[in-house]
Amino acid sequence: MTAMIDDVRTEALFVSDLQRSQAPTLEVIREAVTTTVSRLGENGCAALVAQEFGEHPDCAIGRMRWARSAVRLAFAA
């Protein structure tokens, strides 16, 4: 179950407006995830991730790596 939750959080951060260059705090990352899931829902986040990988695969890979790492840090137990 935790892996699925992490996947949803990662997808939400990926499609959020938050940028790595903003050097967001862990609190800001958590807020961006919560806001994005509330706004788009789980399926909406997944659909936008797929769209971005289809349209910009070269950029999407780096953003997904950052999102996954940021979510792990922000939501560490």
Rank of each mutant, 00 (worst) to 15 (best):
V15G: 11
S16D: 15
S16M: 15
D17L: 04
D17P: 01
L18W: 03
Q19Y: 10
R20P: 02
S21K: 12
S21W: 05
S21H: 10
S21F: 06
Q22R: 09
Q22D: 13
P24D: 04
P24Q: 05
P24I: 04
T25Q: 11
L26I: 00
E27G: 10
E27R: 11
I29T: 08
I29C: 01
R30E: 12
A32Y: 02
V33D: 00
V33W: 00
V33E: 06
V33M: 00
T34L: 00
T34D: 09
T35H: 04
T36W: 00
V37H: 05
V37I: 14
V37C: 03
S38R: 14
R39G: 08
L40A: 05
G41H: 00
G41A: 01
G41R: 10
E42C: 06
N43Q: 14
G44M: 06
G44T: 08
C45V: 09
C45Y: 10
A46L: 15
A47K: 15
A47C: 12
L48C: 08
V49Y: 13
V49R: 12
E52P: 01
F53N: 02
G54D: 04
E55P: 02
H56T: 05
H56W: 07
P57D: 06
P57Y: 06
D58G: 00
D58A: 11
C59H: 12
C59N: 07
A60M: 09
A60C: 02
A60E: 06
I61Q: 13
I61G: 08
I61E: 12
I61W: 09
G62K: 08
R65L: 12
W66C: 09
A67L: 11
R68D: 08
R68V: 04
R68L: 10
A70P: 01
A76G: 10
A77I: 02
